[in-house]
Design a protein around this nucleic acid. Sequence first.
DNA 1: CGCGGCGTTGATCTCTGTCAATACTTGTGG
DNA 2: CCACAAGTATTGACAGAGATCAACGCCGCG
Lengths: 232, 232
Amino acid sequence: MDSRDWQIVRSTPLFGTMPQDVALSLIGSQPVRSYEKGTTLFQQGEPASSFFVILDGWVKLFRITPDGNEAVVGVFRRGESFAEAAIFLGGRYPVSAEAVTSTRLARIDGELLRRRIREQPDLALAMLASSSHHLKSLVEQIEQIKLLTAQQRLADFLVNLAPANEGSCVIELPYEKALIASRLGMKPESLSRALAKLRPLGVSVDRETVSIVDVDLLVRFVEASPRDDEGF
Amino acid sequence: MDSRDWQIVRSTPLFGTMPQDVALSLIGSQPVRSYEKGTTLFQQGEPASSFFVILDGWVKLFRITPDGNEAVVGVFRRGESFAEAAIFLGGRYPVSAEAVTSTRLARIDGELLRRRIREQPDLALAMLASSSHHLKSLVEQIEQIKLLTAQQRLADFLVNLAPANEGSCVIELPYEKALIASRLGMKPESLSRALAKLRPLGVSVDRETVSIVDVDLLVRFVEASPRDDEGF
DNA sequence: CGCGGCGTTGATCTCTGTCAATACTTGTGG
DNA sequence: CCACAAGTATTGACAGAGATCAACGCCGCG
């Protein structure tokens, strides 16, 4: 782990608030590992001994049903941590994880973390904040699936990717469209069509490059009732 | 708070694992309050100073969009705690809460809890476990909405209400059908139809009383791929 | 060049939401 | 006690969103 990596770790809400030496003792001893695209990091139901911070790349969390269908419940990027919760859940991962690009991860040992929490109560508050943050994003995801159309969910996804929340911009899709589709709770075909239907709102696509004429227009489209899209 | 209430509090994963005196100091000083059906407990965006344990009744958590649509993200009952996460999330509730029946709640002060966590690190682990548990149930909810049909979600809901996971049983629906519908991510009309379509699987309904011939049949229906319901 | 992975497009079908009409239940006031 | 109103659940007709199945285009790669 070089200083660039360390900087990333310290930028997370979890490791950014704790004293430097505590963070070092948690993460320093563990080697950073690289994973190829497509590597399974852990599987749902597996004993959970540790959690991760992403130093580079993208990771997806998903659930698999008995018949093989898959639901993506989160996609994380550099600077984000995941699977913290598993440590406290009877020690089993409730989801599976896979590297969707080639990836570098720092692994934090769960038992060590629990010991540190006992010695260092502020650490617990940081963990709770981090866990609460994940909770909130899941709630938002549920809200989205339940009351937005596929087009609106996609528009929201693009808005969150955009650097500013007004004016025009050009963004690169961070990972495969099939994964974006799954993340947004739809099929790849539907994503394709949804993208096409956003054209009148100033969204044009070429490969993985998306140009947005006016981000604010998209924001207003997302906030509109699913039904009154006449005006657009 | 009588001894029956106290027993309920101690039955929660959160308050059950901590030393008795700590639990008492957290909860004992706060008066138990009663709320009528329909009472708003707090609203999304409001400053969050405390969280709750349900001593009696049912509470729903939901999100409201600018245009008034509502998505239920959880329904809790006696012995469950809710809104713990808000305490650690910059102090604002990310959801709204309402009593769906007449309800009695114990309120726990957030600032007090934070202080206790600093003194009592084991408390932090209990909080983390509780929070992780909520996280897991949200993940499961997302999975359900994303890859089960309305009928399957309903079947799953009934199965979770049933006392055993095989054989026959009779259960009472715990709250209004409109709320069940919203909790399951569908409209009341769809719930009605989904119930009707479960009849061939041995589910019959009268008012709020549901009779199930064979719970295991429902379980297998939920686990089947959404499409191959031919056999049923 | 041919092959395989990924994405798009088209035709069709199914599910669920919407709108409207109709019981049924409960509570209220005459 | 009945009439009436309001809230809740069911049912029907219809429309729209999204899934499915299939075909095709595009691109990178051996």
